[in-house]
C-alpha cells in the first residue's frame, strides 16, 4: 500500500473529505518554497501536489503561469524540485504528487527521473500533457520505481477512457470538473457531481476533484461526491500576495481553513 493509498484509506475510515493542495515548487524561491510545503502539511492537507515550473504551461491559467515564472526566475528546475522534495520529505506527513509537463521529464530521461523521484520520497507523478496513449511506457517505469502514476479525467473523457485511466493509474484519479485552464472560480462547477458519478461508475480508484475550488464550502460540497477536493490556484494566489514574514503562517491558516478544522481564518 502506497502512502497515497493510505491517505485515502484514512479518509474513508474517518469518513471525511480530503484536501489535495497544489503549490508550485520554487515559488517564490527555493527557501520559502520549503517553508510553504511544511506549512501546507501542518495545515492539514491530505495530499500535496508539487508543481514543477515549466516555461510553457499551456494547461494553466494566469495565476499558476505567474507562479511558474517566479520559480523559474528564482532558478528552480526539475532537478531542483527533486532535491527540494528530498530535503523536506521526512518532515512531512502528507504524500507528495509531482505535477509536471512532459518535456522536463523527457529531457532528464524517464528512467533517471523515476529513480531520482523515488529516492527523494515522491509518492506519485502526474504528467499533464501525457495522455493515456502516450503514457504507457512511462507509466510502467513509474510503477516499477514505486511511484503512483496519476491520470486526469475531464468532462470530455469517455467511459472507455475512464476505465483505462483507472486500470493504468494508481493512488487516485484527478477529475477536472470543468473545461478550460486552472484558476479559481466562485462556485463548484455545475455538473461536477454528475461527472464524479460517471467516474465512479467506471472506476475503482478514489477520486480527487478540482479546478476552480477556493473555499471550505467548495471542499465540503465536493465531499458529497468525491473522496477529495483539489485546491490549487487559490492557494498559489495566497502565496503570491502574502508578505515575506507572514507567508508560512498565512499558508498554514488558509489550508486549515479549507479543511474546515479552523474557524474565522482571514479569507
Amino acid at each position: 500500500m502506497s502512502r497515497i493509498d493510505e491517505a485515502f484509506a484514512t479518509l474513508r475510515a474517518e469518513a471525511r473529505v480530503g484536501l489535495v493542495a497544489y503549490v508550485t515548487a520554487g515559488d517564490p524561491d527555493r527557501e520559502r518554497s520549503a517553508e510553504v510545503l511544511r506549512a501546507v502539511d501542518r495545515g492539514g492537507a491530505d495530499v500535496i501536489e508539487v508543481g514543477v515550473p515549466f516555461s510553457d504551461p499551456l494547461a494553466d491559467g494566469p495565476v499558476i503561469q505567474r507562479a511558474s515564472e517566479r520559480a523559474l526566475r528564482a532558478g528552480m528546475t526539475l532537478s531542483g524540485v527533486l532535491d527540494l522534495v528530498g530535503e523536506v520529505r521526512h518532515e512531512l506527513r502528507a504524500p507528495i504528487v509531482l505535477f509536471t509537463y512532459a518535456n522536463p521529464v523527457v529531457r532528464m530521461g524517464v528512467d533517471a527521473f523515476a529513480s531520482r523521484a523515488a529516492a527523494a520520497g515522491v509518492d506519485g507523478v502526474l504528467v499533464l500533457d501525457l495522455p493515456l496513449e502516450e503514457a504507457r511506457e512511462t507509466r510502467d517505469v513509474f510503477v516499477e520505481a514505486g511511484l503512483d502514476p496519476i491520470f486526469l479525467v475531464s468532462p470530455t473523457t469517455t467511459p472507455e477512457r475512464i476505465a483505462l485511466a483507472d486500470a493504468l493509474g494508481r493512488g487516485f484519479l484527478y477529475v477536472i470538473s470543468r473545461l478550460g485552464v486552472t484558476g479559481a472560480r466562485a462556485t463548484v462547477a455545475e455538473g461536477a457531481g454528475e461527472l464524479a458519478a460517471r467516474v465512479r461508475a467506471s472506476a475503482r480508484l478514489p477520486i480527487a476533484l478540482g479546478f476552480g475550488l477556493s473555499q471550505p464550502d467548495h471542499v465540503k460540497a465536493v465531499g458529497a461526491f468525491a473522496d477529495a477536493a483539489v485546491v490549487g490556484s487559490a492557494l498559489v494566489d495566497r502565496i503570491a500576495t502574502s508578505g515575506r514574514d507572514e507567508l508560512a503562517r498565512d499558508v498554514e491558516q488558509y489550508v486549515r481553513w479549507l479543511t474546515g478544522r479552523a474557524e474565522g481564518a482571514d479569507a
Binding site: 499551456l58 500533457d129 501525457l130 495522455p131 493515456l132 502516450e134 470530455t156 477512457r161
Partner: peptide, 19 residues
C-alpha cells in the same frame, strides 16, 4: 498514434484528447 517514426504523437492534456 500519430507518429512519424519516433516523432509526432499527441501530447495534450486529457481534456483535448476527445476533441
Amino acid at each position: 498514434r500519430g507518429y512519424f517514426g519516433p516523432f509526432g504523437g499527441r501530447f495534450v492534456p486529457e481534456t483535448l484528447m476527445a476533441p
